[in-house]
Nucleic acid binder design. Structure first.
Lengths: 232, 232
DNA sequence: GTCTTTTTTCACTAAGTGATGAAATGATGG
DNA sequence: CCATCATTTCATCACTTAGTGAAAAAAGAC
C-alpha cells in the first residue's frame, strides 16, 4: 500500500467526505459488490467500479490499494456480521431447546439468519450472497478465504448435530453439510434459473418459498444419510 | 466470423488435419476447458489458452472465432454426451422399474450417470463439471445457456417424479430440484473445500462417498418437501 | 513439376488494463 | 489569511488484451 492510511475518523480534518452525504468509501464498496457479484472478479474493471460509484479510479486505489484488496474489502465487510448473526441464532436455539433439540431445528438456526438478512437487508446483501456463492464455486479462488471466515460456524453446526445424533459419524455429517451448503448458496444467490425452468411457477426471489422447504429438505437428507450409516 | 470456415471435410484435398497425432482443435478445447474451469471466462486470456495448448493465438481465432465462441464450443462439446447418457439412464430405469419406481430410484437414474462419467472420464470431465457449476452460479452468465441444454432433461425428471408421486405439487418438485442441483454441482466440481473443512476425514475427489450419500439425501429431501405440501 | 486448398505462424493494431505521481480542492486550526 | 492535511481529480505510464491480414508451410491433385 503506497497511499497514506485513509482516515482516523476523528472529527473532520481535511476535505470532508464529499457533499454526497453518503460515505464515499461505502459507495465504492457497494458498486464493487454489485459488479463482482454479477460478473466475478476478473469480469469487472476498476474503471467500471469507478464509473458506477461516480468517482475517479485513482480514488479507489487511494482507499483500497490493488484491485484484489478491493475485492477482499468487499468480502470482509459483511462476513463478520454474518458470522455474528449465525452465532447468535444458534446460541438462542441451543438455549431455548437445550434438552429437546432436533436436526431440523439446528439446521433452521443455521440457515434462517441468512434468509432473514437477505430478505431484510436490501440489494447489497443479495449481491453479497451471490458473490459468496461464486467464490465457493471457483476452485482457484475461494479455498483459503472461505475457510478462514466460515469454517468455525460450520464446525459448530457439526458439533451440535453430533450432540443431537451422537451415533452419527463425522464423515456423514460433513458430507451432508456439503450438500446443504450447495443447496443453500444456490438458493441465496437467486440466479433466476428456477423462474424460467418452472415456467413462472417459482421465483428465485421468493425466499419465503425457500424457507418453507429448505429446512425440511436438508433435515430429512441428514437423517437419511445418518440412517444408512454403516457404509462409505 | 471473418476467417474462412475451417473445414469442408470432403475427401482429403489440402493439408490433412493431423500432423501432430492429436487433433489440434481438441488440444485447444482441452486447454481452454481446464483454464476456464479454474479461473472462469474472464480469468483466462486467449494467450494463456494458446500457451497451454502450444499453438499461436491466431490459430484459436481461426478455428473458433471470438473468445466467447471458444467458450461456447467448450461448453457444447460435452453437453450432448451428458444429455444422452442421462436420457439413456432414465430410459433404462423407467423400463426396468416401470411399475415400482421410487423417488430415490428416479433421482439415482438422474444423477448417477454424471458421477460415473466423472469417475471414468478423466480430468477433462472433472474440469467440465467445475465449469458448469461456475456457469450455474454466475447470474449474468448462464441463464440462457444452461436453460437451452439442461432444461429438457430436468423437465423429464420432474415429470417422472410427478408420476411416482401424483399428489406432489409442481412447485415443490421444482424447488426440490433446485436444492438437488446445488448439492450435485458442488459435489461434482470437487472444490476441495470439504477436505480442509473435515480436516482430512473427507475428500472431494471421493465420488464413491458422494454416491453412497447423495441419492438418499436428495430423495429424503424430496419426500419431506412433498409431505409438508399444503403450505407457501 | 505446378496448382489448389487447408493449416499454421508472424507481425501488428486499436483499445483497454491496473496503477501512479503530481496537482487541485477545500475544510480546519493557528 | 495562511499553512496543513486528508481527500479528490487529471494525465499518463507501461503493459496486456482480443482480434486481424498477409504470408509461409504442408500436402494432395493434376
Amino acid at each position: 500500500m503506497t497511499a497514506a492510511k485513509p482516515r482516523a475518523r476523528t472529527a473532520g480534518r481535511g476535505r470532508p467526505a464529499k457533499a454526497t452525504g453518503r460515505d464515499l468509501k461505502e459507495t465504492i464498496l457497494d458498486a464493487a459488490e454489485g459488479l463482482f457479484a454479477r460478473h466475478g472478479f476478473h469480469g469487472v474493471t476498476i474503471r467500471q467500479v469507478a464509473a458506477e460509484a461516480g468517482v475517479d479510479t485513482a480514488l479507489i486505489h487511494y482507499y483500497f490499494g490493488a484491485k484484489r484488496e478491493l475485492f477482499d474489502a468487499v468480502f470482509l465487510r459483511r462476513a463478520e456480521i454474518l458470522n455474528t448473526a449465525r452465532g447468535l441464532s444458534m446460541d438462542a436455539y441451543e438455549k431455548s431447546h437445550a434438552d429437546r433439540m432436533t436436526v431440523e431445528g439446528v439446521i433452521e438456526a443455521f440457515i434462517e439468519p441468512l434468509l432473514r438478512i437477505s430478505q431484510d437487508g436490501g440489494q447489497g446483501w443479495k449481491s453479497y450472497f451471490a458473490l459468496v456463492a461464486q467464490v465457493n464455486n471457483t476452485p482457484a479462488w475461494g479455498g483459503e478465504t472461505m475457510a478462514r471466515f466460515f469454517d468455525p460456524v460450520v464446525h459448530r453446526l457439526v458439533e451440535t448435530l453430533k450432540v443431537v445424533r451422537p451415533d452419527a459419524e463425522y464423515r456423514d455429517l460433513y458430507w451432508s453439510y456439503q450438500f446443504l451448503t450447495g443447496s443453500m448458496m444456490l438458493a441465496l444467490s437467486e440466479t433466476g434459473r428456477i423462474d424460467s425452468l418452472s415456467e413462472g411457477q417459482c421465483h428465485s426471489s421468493d425466499l419465503g418459498a425457500v424457507r418453507a422447504r429448505l429446512f425440511a429438505y436438508c433435515a430429512a437428507g441428514f437423517e437419511a444419510v445418518i440412517a444408512r450409516a454403516p457404509k462409505a
